[in-house]
Structure formats: C-alpha cells, structure tokens
Simulated assay, not measured.
Amino acid sequence: MQTPLELAFRDIEPDEEIKDLVAGKVAHLEGFYDGITSCHVYLRAPHRSQRQGNRYEVTIEVRVPGDELVVRYDQNDVAEHEHLAVAIRNAFAAMDRELKRWKDRVTGEIKTHDGPLQGKVVEIHHDRDFGQIVATDQRLVYFHRNSVVDGSFDELRPRDPVELVVQTDESELGPQASTVRRIGTMQYDPAAKPAR
C-alpha cells in the first residue's frame, strides 16, 4: 500500500491481538490485489446492552485506483458480533467479496452470457412509472417507464419475462436497466434438436 494501515479504536481499548488480526486480514487483501493504495479500519463499541451485550461496529474503507470500497457492519447486525474478532472476520470477508467484484469489473473478467440478459418482472408500479426485475444473474434491477421499448410499459405484469440491458454505472437505487423488452415465454419443442 502507498500509505500504512490506519486502524482506529472508538470506545474500545486498543489490543495487540486485535491489531495483529486486522493487519493479517489487510495483508490477505493485498495478496489478492496489490494495487490497494490505502486501508482504514474503524472499530467501535457503540453501547453496551444488558440483554445482548456489546455489538461491535466494524467499518473498512479500501482505496483502489479510481474508487473507494466501503464495508460497514454495525451493532444492529447479527448476535455473533458480540465478539470483536468475529465481527472483524465477517467484515473482512465482505470486503474480500467487494474487492473481487471490483477487480473483475475493472479487468473485464465479468462472466459474459450467451445472448442478452433476461429476467422476470417482480414488481411494477404503473402509476409511479417504475418497476423491478430479478435478472437471471440474481440481481434485482430497477427500471423506469422510459427504458421499456415499444412503449409497452403499461402492458407489463409481474412474472412477465423480459430481456434487459443494465447500465454500467449503478444509480442510488442499485443496478438500473437502460433497456427493457418484453419477450415471450420459452416453449418446449420436442422436435427441436439441442444446440451443440
């Protein structure tokens, strides 16, 4: 990294074992991608509850060329986060996944599908001009009336199959379709030969 690891403790006594654990997790991230420019880790114990104990909050900020990846696990998360080491492990596992997604995106190693991406409409609000599609790659994708080709937005219903093109830049709402086209359902044709 260009700058050393920055580790901050808030409402927690600094502990050498925890420092070593975090340093090891950061080294693992660097082993996966050596272009990380900086990493900031914030550990916090917001408050102690008599019933549930202390739920630790872990925030990890990793800066990579042209981007910043952030993972935050807070006190409202799972009960296992009463143990700081477990909260750290879970937060770094999530950062591992974020870093892998980012690396795949920038190196162009995202899996490509044969043909256009497809999905099914799972939610549609004709009165508010938007809906959501669950795509075959399991993403939930937002779409607006204007993205539906042939002006067929008002004809769309939940469970309708569609083809879609997802914008490369995610909006505040997450993945968003730039183009949605209604398609027919696939029919089984016993006479058709499988493609090889």
Rank of each mutant, 00 (worst) to 15 (best):
P194E: 10
N90G: 12
Y42K: 13
G108K: 15
T37G: 08
L69T: 03
D67L: 03
V165H: 09
V122G: 09
V22W: 07
S49K: 12
E17Q: 06
H83Q: 12
T37Y: 10
D104M: 07
I183D: 00
A23S: 02
T136M: 07
H144M: 10
D169K: 13
C39T: 05
E68D: 07
E109L: 06
D160N: 07
E80H: 14
P116M: 05
R145L: 13
H83M: 11
N76E: 06
A135V: 00
A8H: 09
D154C: 08
E68V: 15
Q75F: 07
V106E: 00
A192N: 01
E109A: 09
D34C: 02
D150I: 13
V149Q: 12
I110E: 15
K19H: 15
E57Y: 10
E155W: 10
Y188W: 06
D137G: 09
A45H: 04
E30Y: 13
N76V: 10
P4Q: 08
D127L: 09
R128F: 04
T59M: 08
W102I: 14
Y188E: 14
G119T: 07
I88L: 02
L29H: 03
V148W: 01
K111N: 11
A93K: 15
T3D: 14
A94C: 04
E172I: 15
M186E: 08
S49H: 15
T179A: 05
Q132P: 05
P194S: 01
A191E: 10
D150H: 15
H40Q: 11
T185D: 11
E172F: 11
E98R: 14
H83S: 12
E82L: 04
K103V: 11
K103S: 13
